[in-house]
């Protein structure tokens, strides 16, 4: 990470700490804000947050690794999360799954070489009445068919 990037990240975290408060209970909102912007929480950011909230870096890392929606390693610019819980699973998830992996040429858990899309599974999205469902960043798409899913991916590609 460049020094200039570090400085801007530090300033950003300072702003977030000011917004949410210099208290451990601000940790999740701060991490969420960083994750929203960078799609992951950089190592430097974790240390900076720890410093500013007066906790230990490993505690921040511990929290980041606990939650499925927080990441400690860089990912693609768009995050596609396909629901794998039982109702989506029996409603045609399998076909959607293979269409997506065929189209992107990557498996779940991987990122496209151009870093545009990271593919992940997720547990129940609360869309069981409209499955199969997937999340693209914070948007939810339901009643997926293989064609529809590929169309959505093509839009963000």
């Amino acid at each position: 990470m460049l020094v200039s990037e570090r400085t801007s990240l530090t300033e950003e975290i300072e702003r977030l700490v000011e917004q949410y408060g210099k208290d451990r209970s601000s940790l999740l909102p701060i991490l969420q804000a960083v994750e929203r912007k960078y799609r992951y929480v950089p190592d430097f950011a974790m240390q900076e947050i720890a410093l500013q909230l007066d906790i230990h870096p490993v505690e921040v890392y511990s929290v980041v690794t606990f939650y499925s929606f927080l990441h400690s390693k860089p990912r693609g610019r768009n995050i596609v999360r396909l629901c794998r819980t039982i109702i989506c699973d029996i409603s045609g998830k399998e076909n959607v799954e293979s269409a997506i992996t065929r189209e992107l040429g990557i498996s779940f858990g991987e990122t496209t070489p151009d870093k545009k899309i990271t593919l992940e599974y997720t547990n129940c999205l609360g869309m069981c009445d409209q499955g199969p469902a997937m999340m693209v960043n914070d948007r939810v798409f339901t009643r997926l068919t293989p064609e529809k899913a590929v169309e959505i991916l093509n839009e963000i590609k």
Partner: peptide, 10 residues
């Protein structure tokens, strides 16, 4: 609301 198959809160 995270229980699989629950979406009433939504």
């Amino acid at each position: 609301e995270g229980e699989p198959g629950t979406f009433k809160d939504r």
